[in-house]
Design a protein around this nucleic acid. Structure first.
Length: 271
DNA sequence: ACGAAGCCCTGCAAGC
DNA sequence: TGCTTGCAGGGCTTCG
């Protein structure tokens, strides 16, 4: 499932091919995504040029003259750059066709993703305006998390996955960062010391940077825009490894449910 | 304000 | 082999 590293990998993969290119036409095969693809999308973007390819949290923003296309990959979405003569396959829901002959193809089996048109400043849109800081920016650190967590009983893993607290972290990277930091995922956020939050923030930055460098995590559906998978899966320490031995102490990893989501951790190494 | 649960959707694995 | 069932889960939305 695409989290920050996968979305950033996608952004980097498409940026140079799309920048300053003009959209020749748009083909919507399946408008039923998380929200309906606006019927007027093709009309609105055709003939416009890509000025910027940005990412905020897990959202991609294609900035055009007079508006932006907002893309979310949901759980199973991916974007690929293909030649215009490549036949569309299953779940290829939307094509953005460029004057260069390149097609930006949106594929999403579970259709939890979305493609929207925003007329005004994307950062002021309701979906983006309340997002927390980007975890890889200086505004995000252990002190920020420590201050924000005081008095809160919610499990630390759920706090990390709350995009209003910090943007772009999902189940995979929350699990990995908590393991590296030695913190139990079900520990109450308000009962973690400042010192441990400093460690945790550093671990979050480290795991995200390492994942981006490896092209993200491919579990099932995610592909980079060139069609290749990301290779971070091979370095996952806890995610998806329930009952397997801990990489540090060899004790079997525990798997619990936290806020409807499965969480894997080591009850010896994480306290 | 916070926290928990519901919902959208398809693919896959397990069970019969 | 071919069904049914359960699970996976991001994040908006609603309810308590």
């Amino acid at each position: 499932m695409p989290e920050l590293p996968e979305v950033e990998t996608t952004r980097r993969g498409i940026e140079s091919s799309l920048l300053h290119r003009k959209i020749a036409h748009v083909l919507v095969r399946m408008p039923k995504l998380r929200w309906p693809v606006p019927p007027e999308l093709a009309h609105l973007v055709t003939g416009k040029t890509i000025e910027q390819v940005m990412r905020r949290a897990k959202y991609l923003v294609l900035k055009l003259d007079g508006g932006s296309v907002l893309i979310h990959l949901g759980m199973s979405g991916s974007l690929r750059l293909v030649q215009s003569n490549l036949t569309a396959g299953k779940h290829d829901h939307v094509d953005f066709c460029f004057d260069s002959g390149i097609v930006l193809r949106y594929n999403d089996p579970r259709r939890f993703g979305s493609i929207l048109w925003l007329e005004n400043d994307p950062l002021k849109h309701p979906l983006l305006k309340d997002l927390g800081p980007e975890p890889l920016c200086d505004g995000f650190d252990g002190d920020y998390l420590y201050q924000l967590s005081r008095g809160r009983k919610v499990a630390i893993k759920m706090l990390l996955m709350n995009n209003q607290v910090v943007a772009g972290i999902g189940n995979i990277y929350a699990s990995e960062a908590l393991f590296t930091a030695g913190i139990r995922p079900d520990r109450a956020a308000g009962r973690i010391s400042r010192a441990r939050y400093l460690t945790l923030a550093a671990c979050i930055k480290e795991v995200l940077n390492r994942a981006i460098a490896m092209g993200g995590t491919t579990l099932r559906n995610f592909l980079k825009p060139d069609g290749q998978p990301g290779y971070f899966k091979q370095t996952l320490l806890v995610y998806g490894r329930g009952e397997q031995p801990c990489t540090k102490c060899r004790m079997p990893l525990k798997q619990i449910r936290l806020g409807q989501r499965s969480s894997v951790f080591c009850s010896r190494c994480q306290r």
